[in-house]
Design a protein around this nucleic acid. Structure first.
Lengths: 249, 249
DNA sequence: CGGGACTTTGAGCAAATTCAACCATTGTGG
DNA sequence: CCACAATGGTTGAATTTGCTCAAAGTCCCG
């Protein structure tokens, strides 16, 4: 559970000025991957770059869905709220991830910057026009949607059927897989988000998350490397734990 | 939790013979909606009709993803399992719903017939060839994926943050919305699935589902109409309950 | 060095689960 | 046509996991 700072609205730091796609180091991960040079140019023409500071709201549930985004740096959390403030984080987004896929003309979720972030931003009507022109882009988007859907099903399994320990183990491994995807396979994992965020992602409370991590630490399965970094020491144990094999530890 | 009858494999009742799309009464809901007559004809050419009996497995997690389906009659449950048999149902599919969207070449979930069902079946390579030809079909599929994604996020909120009572209320309303979509807005809702299925969908146990429904019945909010039918008597109360307003009932 | 936010730890509590028994409905075979 | 087994659903009591409430400990930043 969590209280949300509702009064802090988005403050766009550096707006407008588009940064060149040429030097973009997340292009291979993003929706724009696989486009031909001329297509990329057309896409670039309708793009602007926006930055948010940690804590800023990027997207607000219920607002007109005017834009689509691509995260180029930093981390974002996507979440939904209940009437009394209970929060469920449905996903964390990192560099390369896509934000804003929706059929409706309003967003069905909110998004907040976890760290300082940079995003490519596209106006929806313009983006959709390009979508109609470039089948490859549409195909890519369908791919993005499909893999998000698969991830969502995994997360439902986690939320509905896993124990606190299994949830935390799954979460750490998920972050590590993501880290490895970007190249770093050292077993060191960044935790840019707070315990409250982790709790709201896993359907737990901060206290339970904290206790569970302490348990894993005591059991020698992970090592806290101060300040939002954690080392996965016994990777295989963690993996089994995440899949529910219950090594009774 | 639930034990799965692992030994009962799919028995295709009526295979092969394609039924004409002409008279199909779910076409307006399905992926094939909005296609031009000649496009529809091409799609029909690669389609076959399959039937399963209640309890049959339609799709098995890990199997080669050879087909895509469209439900034309009956109900199907889609689920994932943990090593020890814990099950999470990620969705129920009804007439008009699509099954089989995936990027990978294996299914990431299983699907089992809840009632006797009929499905349109398409071979993946052929279907994908048509996708490339008919942008409208691809667009439609992206729409399907998007709305499934939105539903998945709602379900994550439910699983992670709602109480048993809120979960059951949400579930009943969801079924009713679906029923209303097909035309029937009488407030009567069919419950073709077992208590165990409902429990595995809501992240609860059968006992808790049963107790909760009994509570709603006692409070006069619903009426059981014997045999898998339920009447939503106090719709608004139920709606508030589902959204977490806690009318302390 | 001090203040504030976040995290950890502790103790008691409660919602939902587990285990167990009972009831209802259905389908089968004598 | 009825008895009865089988399956699924309901109810009860005890237990447990994770939550709530409370306090103390860290870390960062000015």
């Amino acid at each position: 559970m969590a209280s949300i700072d509702t009064d802090r609205m988005a403050t766009i730091r550096g707006a407008g000025a588009a940064e060149p796609c040429d030097g973009c180091d997340v292009r291979s991960l993003a929706v724009c991957s696989g486009l031909k040079p001329d297509e990329l140019e057309r896409l670039e023409a309708i793009k602007s770059t926006v930055r948010y500071r940690a804590g800023d709201i990027c997207v607000q549930e219920g607002d007109a869905a005017a834009h689509l985004f691509n995260v180029t740096a930093g981390a974002i959390k996507v979440y939904k709220l209940l009437a009394d403030g209970r929060r469920q984080i449905t996903g964390f987004l990192f560099a390369g991830d896509f934000l804003g896929l929706t059929l409706n003309d309003t967003y069905a979720y909110s998004a907040e910057a976890v760290t300082n972030v940079a995003l490519c931003r596209f106006q929806r009507p313009r983006f959709e026009a390009l979508l109609a022109e470039f089948p490859k882009l549409e195909k890519r988007l369908l791919g993005v949607a499909s893999s998000e859907l698969a991830a969502a099903q995994d997360q439902m399994l986690l939320l509905g059927r896993k124990t606190a320990r299994e949830k935390v183990a799954s979460f750490l491994l998920q972050l590590q897989r993501r880290t490895a995807q970007v190249g770093d396979s050292s077993g060191m994992v960044d935790l840019p988000m707070s315990r409250t965020d982790i709790a709201d992602y896993l359907g737990l409370t901060t206290e339970t998350v904290s206790r569970t991590i302490t348990q894993l630490k005591t059991a020698g399965i992970v090592r806290l490397q101060g300040q939002g970094r954690i080392a996965l020491a016994r990777h295989e144990t963690l993996r089994q734990m995440a899949e529910g094999f219950d090594p009774a530890g």
